[in-house]
Write a protein that binds this DNA or RNA. Structure first.
Length: 553
RNA sequence: GGCCCCAUCGUCUAGCCCGGUCCAGGACACCUCCCUUUCAAGGAGGACACAUGGGUUCGAAUCCCAUUGGGGUCACCA
């Protein structure tokens, strides 16, 4: 025995969707724990469920992790991360390895073939439920079968699984977060370790791979806590070491429910019910799928359809996956910071820190035991603070990158100079990188296509005395001859004009202009708005607005 | 329901391990006022929590027990 072995942690998602924020936090903590101790962080893809796994999803994880700034030392190769001597890192490519250890277990009498069908097991479970007792698989019959009998059954093509023979006795779990727990004798039954399709189950693959990949510390969500008993008996039977465990508290919705991809469908169903829609909006799904989805709450629509429906219905889908937050314009460093605060804290009053800090200070002793409700309002506030702390230059760069990725059409309609002006004008009011694009659509709308919000028209243009239209007419008169159409120049004529025309209240001058220019009562500062739009567009919009006043009146 | 775990403001949490410095601190949200060319932002105030009941102790948010409440888990999903 020399020095203590290097710390090795791993994040092992199943590629059945995008990276969930809860998963992101687990990955972040695993990364921080290992890297903060000179250790190594491994990414492993647990694709042992042939029905649910997809290659696209595993690439998605890699992309999301990279975006968050989490690098892995070993694992699938992706943009400079990954590789390593203990691969492959996709479990579906490790079948022969599992086979070897499975054979050891069978040879030692610690595992056996079982031939019950899924239907038979379901019936057994229901019977137990009816009697009010928990179902535990008893393997006496299966275990009593002779080698010859088993061989004959298998040769005859009878589907079978392999189960682990759990020995009697309580199982003690030592956990760095939750402390010690004893699972009583009989709670852990003879669970399946190889499925009928020849793939190992999660329990088996995880134990084998953690051993072979040298994992020393298993940090995972608390929902796995009870599984630990299974993993421990497996490790003992296989002669493996037992890693240190740390179960992290769950991250849940504000109402206490589990954060799930299904939450998006839930929002859509609600919106549809409110509108009493009975058929799917055109261009979404076929009526049959739509009806089935409405009825069965467990069905999820494909992501593209979900997004399209949300747009058509005008509802905002909740962000669940890392990529959702990215689209919504959250900064990766803010997401990491905020996620760290769910279930861990550095102590004291400190709450703003970066990944480097986390890596230096993260420890299991300060991990909370209670589930954390994900507070989007606080996340938003953090994002706003981070954005306002940026230099103008940084904001332009980041906003442009976000725009190229998610609002290419918007970007294409603006010159570089216009975009920079827009950034400067919107920076301090941006809570997310996406705000810039969502709240300034008036810029990319053609002058003639601008729709004026009726409520704004009524309040700002038709109301007041003098009424907004009159103020607008007056403003047009001073703007038309202006040569220096810049923020400074505009301010130079408009401020004195406000002084003489509306008693010094710039507000009563700015609002009618804003509605004429943008169609709404909200926009960047009025001089910026005029400058970005330019003389021609601005005057055209004012004229159009004035012209329509005659029609309405 | 069985089993396991947990319990500080509405929310994220500090304090708990090593009882007194806590009539419990910070942040987000909320309320009021100020600032203001809109919306934000910003400034100044404010309201808001130790689940309950028993112990132990001179003294408990901090230790023990019970109750209640919450979460997790009981798959050929991970």
């Amino acid at each position: 025995m020399t020095a203590s072995p290097m710390v090795v942690t791993r994040f092992a998602p199943s590629p059945s969707g995008h990276l969930h924020v809860g998963g992101a936090r687990t990955a972040l903590f695993c990364w921080a724990y290992a890297k903060g101790r000179g250790g190594s962080f491994t990414l492993r893809i647990e694709d042992t469920d042939q029905k649910r796994s997809s290659d696209a999803a595993s690439i998605g994880f890699a992309k999301d992790l990279k975006w968050l700034g989490i690098d892995w030392d070993e694992g699938p190769e992706y943009e400079g991360s990954g590789g390593g001597p203990r691969g492959p890192y996709f479990q579906s490519e490790r079948l022969p390895i599992y086979r070897r250890h499975l054979d050891r277990l069978i040879a030692a009498g610690n595992a056996y073939y079982a031939f019950e069908t899924a239907e038979e097991l379901t019936a057994l479970r229901e019977a137990a439920k009816a009697k009010g007792v928990p179902f535990r698989y008893k393997g006496e019959i299966a275990r009593a079968r002779s080698v010859e009998e088993i061989a004959a059954l298998r040769a005859a093509g009878a589907p079978s699984v392999i189960r682990f023979h759990t020995r009697a006795g309580p199982i003690t779990i030592e956990d760095e977060v939750l402390g010690t727990a004893v699972i009583p004798d009989g709670e852990t039954d003879d669970f399946v370790i190889q499925k009928a399709d020849g793939f190992p189950t999660y329990h088996f693959a995880v134990v084998v791979d953690d051993e072979l990949m040298g994992v020393t510390h298993v940090l995972r969500a608390q929902e796995h806590f009870n599984n630990t008993a299974k993993h421990i008996v497996l490790q003992d039977a296989l002669g493996f070491r037992r890693p240190t465990y740390g179960h992290l508290p769950l991250i849940v919705n504000p109402d206490g429910s589990k954060m799930s991809k299904r939450d998006k469908d839930k929002v859509l169903r609600k919106a549809i019910a409110e509108r009493a829609l009975t058929s799917p909006p055109v261009g979404t799904v076929d009526p049959a799928t739509f009806a089935a989805w409405l009825k069965d709450k467990t069905i999820q629509l494909p992501p593209e359809v979900t997004t399209r429906l949300a747009t058509l219905l005008g509802v905002t889908l909740p962000e669940i996956n890392v990529d959702d937050f990215r689209r919504s314009g959250y900064l990766p460093e803010v997401l990491c910071n905020f996620l760290s605060l769910n279930g861990w804290s550095p102590g004291g009053d400190l709450e703003k820190f970066d990944n480097e800090f986390l890596r230096e200070h993260f420890d299991l002793a300060r991990v909370l035991k209670t589930p954390a409700k994900f507070d989007r309002a606080k996340l938003l506030a953090f994002n706003l603070h981070a954005i306002s702390a940026m230099t103008r230059e940084a904001f332009v760069t980041r906003a442009a990158a976000h725009g190229q990725a998610f609002h290419a059409g918007f970007m294409a309609k603006l010159t570089v100079a216009q975009f920079r002006s827009l950034c400067d004008a919107s920076h301090e009011r941006s809570k997310t990188l996406d705000d810039l694009f969502r709240s300034n659509t008036f810029i990319t709308t053609a002058d003639d296509d601008l729709v004026l919000d009726p409520k704004a028209v009524k309040k700002v243009l038709e109301g007041g005395s003098p009424c907004g239209y009159d103020i607008l007419r007056g403003a047009r008169a001073v703007l038309a001859p202006l040569a220096d159409w810049t923020v400074g120049g505009l301010e130079g004529v408009l401020k004195p004009h406000a002084e003489s025309a509306v008693g010094g209240s710039l507000g009563s001058l700015a609002q009618p202009l804003r509605v004429a220019l943008c169609g709404s009562t909200v926009s960047p500062p009025i001089f910026d708005t005029l400058a970005i739009l330019g003389r021609e567009s601005s005057l055209a919009r004012i004229d159009r607005c004035l012209a329509q006043s005659g029609v309405v009146a």
